[in-house]
Simulated scan of single mutants.
Amino acid sequence: MSAWALVPLLGLSTPALAHGLFDAQLSERAPLLLSALLIGSAWLLYALGARHVPPRRSEAFCLHSAMLVAAFAVFGPIDDWAQRSTSWHMTQHMLFIVVIAPLWALARPLPQWRGVTGRFAQPLWTSILRAGRYPTLLALLHGAVIWIWHTPKLYVLALDNLWWHAVEHACFLFSGWLFWWSVLRANPKQVPQALMAVVLTLMHTGLLGALLTFGTVSFYGTGRAVEDQQLAGLLMWVPGGLVYLLGGGWIAWRWLTRIWRRQPAHRLDQSS
């Protein structure tokens, strides 16, 4: 696992140069530099923590895949395209919400991070674990974040100001991670709440996507084509909705599998 410690540096070096983090406009690129530092630190801590608490291969794959996608979404060309195109901006948002966030949840990185930070960050990990007990509440929080940042004023503000753009990304990633953590890691007693949370998120994101799709005027300024906005709505509505359906199906499948596994033992107890 020591080789993984070099991955954050390799993954961030090229995109950082492409976005001019080290040119004359370094002060203006400070939000991107801070984002790179946070993502790289989280990745490096996971790699170091994996030495103390070895993860499953599937979990490690999910974490490293999520980090690669995050580096591409934040520092790759898609971030430049998002400045000019509503559909590319929506693609960036969907990568945060329905790709990176669920991969982080499936990766279950807290044991590795706790293995490095020890007691120093224990209150943070405890708070995250406790929050995971309330899928419906986290779905409402995540939904509020999505709708608030898609209001015209905040949407344009995030495009015009790199600091607010970084805050927007952080809101999507953190609230999305908490949401997917609570539903994908729900225990059997929480399955009804988890399914309700997924259905609620599916419905309101579909509604937002429909509003963008069927809108006849540009919500985010005259410089953005209505057709591009409609494509953005379709991206949220169709591919995003499919991910939520898959998530709900996975939750139901895990729940039914647990029930089926208990049936033979229950029958043996009755026969004895």
Rank of each mutant, 00 (worst) to 15 (best):
K153A: 15
L154Q: 01
L154S: 00
Y155K: 01
Y155I: 06
V156A: 09
V156E: 10
L157Y: 03
L157V: 06
L157E: 08
N161R: 11
L162H: 13
W163R: 12
W163M: 13
W164V: 12
W164Y: 15
H165L: 07
H165A: 10
A166S: 14
V167S: 02
V167P: 00
E168S: 05
E168A: 11
H169Q: 14
A170H: 06
C171F: 13
F172H: 13
L173H: 02
S175E: 04
G176R: 07
L178C: 10
F179P: 02
F179K: 04
W181S: 03
W181Y: 15
W181M: 10
W181D: 11
W181N: 09
S182K: 02
V183K: 01
L184C: 07
L184A: 13
R185C: 09
R185S: 13
R185T: 10
A186Y: 00
N187Y: 00
K189S: 13
K189F: 07
K189V: 09
K189N: 12
Q190A: 14
Q190L: 11
P192C: 04
P192W: 02
P192D: 03
P192L: 03
P192V: 08
Q193D: 14
Q193F: 10
Q193G: 13
Q193R: 05
A194S: 12
L195V: 15
L195H: 03
A197N: 09
V198C: 11
V199C: 01
V199Q: 02
V199M: 12
L202T: 06
L202E: 08
M203D: 08
M203G: 02
H204G: 07
T205E: 10
G206E: 00
L208G: 14
G209K: 01
G209Y: 01
G209V: 01
A210H: 01
L211V: 09
L211Y: 06
L211T: 07
T213I: 00
F214A: 03
F214I: 05
G215H: 09
G215R: 06
G215T: 13
T216S: 13
T216Q: 14
T216E: 14
V217D: 14
S218V: 08
S218E: 12
S218G: 11
F219H: 13
F219S: 08
F219R: 11
Y220L: 09
Y220N: 08
Y220T: 04
Y220W: 10
G221V: 09
T222A: 15
T222W: 09
G223A: 07
G223R: 03
A225D: 15
A225G: 10
A225W: 11
A225V: 09
A225E: 15
A225R: 14
V226A: 11
E227S: 15
E227G: 12
E227T: 15
Q230D: 04
Q230H: 06
Q230P: 10
G233P: 05
G233T: 05
L234K: 12
L234F: 08
M236W: 01
W237S: 01
V238C: 03
V238I: 15
V238R: 05
P239V: 08
P239F: 03
P239D: 05
G240V: 07
G241Q: 07
G241L: 00
G241V: 03
G241W: 02
L242F: 14
V243M: 14
L245S: 11
L245Y: 05
L245K: 02
L246H: 00
L246S: 03
G247R: 01
G247Y: 05
G247H: 05
G247D: 09
G249W: 11
W250C: 04
I251C: 05
